[in-house]
Design a protein around this nucleic acid. Structure first.
Lengths: 213, 213
DNA sequence: GTCATCATGTAAGCCGTTACATGATTGC
DNA sequence: GCAATCATGTAACGGCTTACATGATGAC
């Protein structure tokens, strides 16, 4: 999962480890770890595998892309102080390679039932072609439905040892699952619309009435 | 977290490892692992620490508590087939000890911000006195509010690199957090009501107007 | 010059998973 | 007897966390 997050971020812009960690924390929350002790070895592993490579960090601020709102806080800070950027000899800036992009697509298509992984997959799914994105969402939907079914099955035969709190927990779980399913359906609808749009260019109107559920 | 789940279940009834795993899967879902490779070492560790002990598994069905709906499925199966229970020499049935119960209460009061741990804590929180239960819920509420605040802070300054899917992800996260907060408030209200009831017996009406939020 | 921050890494250790090994009981 | 299920464990391995080690840069 860490590979997915790293490659996804590097696909957007070149970054060094320290900044990567900050953006990672912003993306998936500062909780759920992602400490230096796992980030740097992961970067080294990816570099060895050829998925990322250290790009020449030019020694002045031109090395840092200032277009748009990228590195917004840092840029704002510098502008406020009115001082040139440091030379930053010690930073090691990474960029994604073409094999790395392929690896990213593979990881996005990876059939994992892990919740956190899916979150990160959604965060970067725009790099997938619509059909694969749709497949990703459909797999997730199937997984959530599977859990819902499992839950319903388990609800029988345990009536004796369920106090108020455990009942409340079960109800809350069920509501959360429904909530997630509604969301997935939104994502699916949006992506299907994109697919239809694409088809309208290449081959008109034979997917519009496609199967639901 | 595995200790918490094991002690919580053993506090309800004596169980052997295999059955423990089944009930664990029912409680927190068959996903999120809890394989034998972690269960048995955990049981051994708890036994060594004196938190659980192997109880004499009598070699006939009398060893298995048939009162109420305990072991409901197994009992039903036997009744249906009409055959006596097996001797089960190989099973090692564990029971919780008094130190184990204390350890259970400690684990329930443990200040962890882990989501899964909290789920299990709720599942067994009935063993806590209402005041401690309330404190557990309040801590969770504070944690969720902290995450919400962090999220809101992070929402500024990232407008450029947010596509539709990442926006949708953020919205969904926010809705999920609100949803969880509503639930926590329900739990808090229920527990506070219990507290007030208790007070009405011991010491009337000086906690009713307690601080909110 | 010293402290905080930025920045990168290594090492020890925990925890949990997968896979393997073993063996009892029961249905057929 | 043989396969399926029940039942208990061990061993290898991997991944992640905490803590440690190092050093550059810039503020004061």
């Amino acid at each position: 999962m860490i590979d997915l997050a790293i490659l996804g971020l590097l696909d957007e812009q070149d970054l060094h480890g320290y900044e990567l960690k900050k953006q990672l924390a912003e993306l998936i929350g500062s909780r759920s770890g992602m400490s230096f002790g796992s980030l740097y070895p992961a970067l080294a592993r990816l570099e060895k595998a050829g998925a990322v490579k250290a790009v020449e960090a030019l020694t002045n601020e031109a090395a840092i892309p200032m277009t748009g709102a990228l590195s917004g806080e840092l840029a704002a800070f510098r502008a406020r102080i009115g001082r040139p950027a440091r030379s930053r000899r010690t930073r090691k800036v990474y960029g994604i390679t073409e094999p790395g992009r392929q690896r990213l697509r593979d990881l996005l298509n990876d059939e994992s039932t892990d919740d956190r992984t899916f979150t990160v997959q959604v965060a970067f799914c725009r790099v997938l072609p619509p059909a694969e994105r749709l497949a990703l969402f459909e797999r997730r939907k199937a997984e959530l439905n599977r859990r819902l079914a499992e839950r319903t099955r388990g609800a029988r035969g345990e009536s004796s040892r369920t106090d108020t709190y455990r009942l409340s927990l079960r109800e809350h779980d069920a509501r959360t699952l429904s909530h997630d399913l509604v969301w997935i359906d939104e994502l699916i609808d949006a992506t299907r619309a994109e697919l239809v749009d694409d088809d309208a260019v290449d081959a008109p109107s034979h997917l519009t009435g496609g199967s639901h559920q």
